[in-house]
């Protein structure tokens, strides 16, 4: 599965457009981590626990999008966009969407 946020795949032709595919994931933080982050907050700096959490969340959303694209027979997703929104205090939603397409000569 090829994923790209460009509209074209270099050196390959789009045979068929299959429409929009998407994936999303909502994650809340572990309360313990939240408290640790709160302490860290006093001094500023990076909150590694949150960085990891959002990274995992983004990977999950992406894998859901890929699943959907595979189920409709696509072999690439182009023009991928991410969006993040905090729904409530302590939880964030990651949403990823793109256009599923079929590309030719993916063998090389």
């Amino acid at each position: 599965m090829f994923i790209s946020n460009l509209e074209i795949m270099t050196g390959k032709k789009v045979i068929k457009h299959l429409g929009l595919v998407q994936g999303s994931s909502v994650r809340a933080k572990h309360a313990g981590k939240d408290i640790m982050a709160g302490i860290k907050n006093m001094f500023g700096g990076e909150l590694k626990a949150y960085t990891e959490l959002l990274h995992e969340s983004r990977e999950e959303a992406t894998s859901r999008m890929i699943e959907q694209a595979e189920s409709i027979g696509a072999n690439a997703v182009l023009n991928v966009r991410y969006s993040t929104s905090s729904i409530t205090a302590g939880a964030a939603e990651i949403y990823v969407y793109g256009t599923a397409v079929i590309l030719d000569n993916l063998g090389d």
Binding site: M42, G44, G45, E46, Y82
Partner: peptide
Amino acid sequence: LVSGSVVIANDY
């Protein structure tokens, strides 16, 4: 596709 992210907080 490549990506990088960071969560950062302000100090008090």
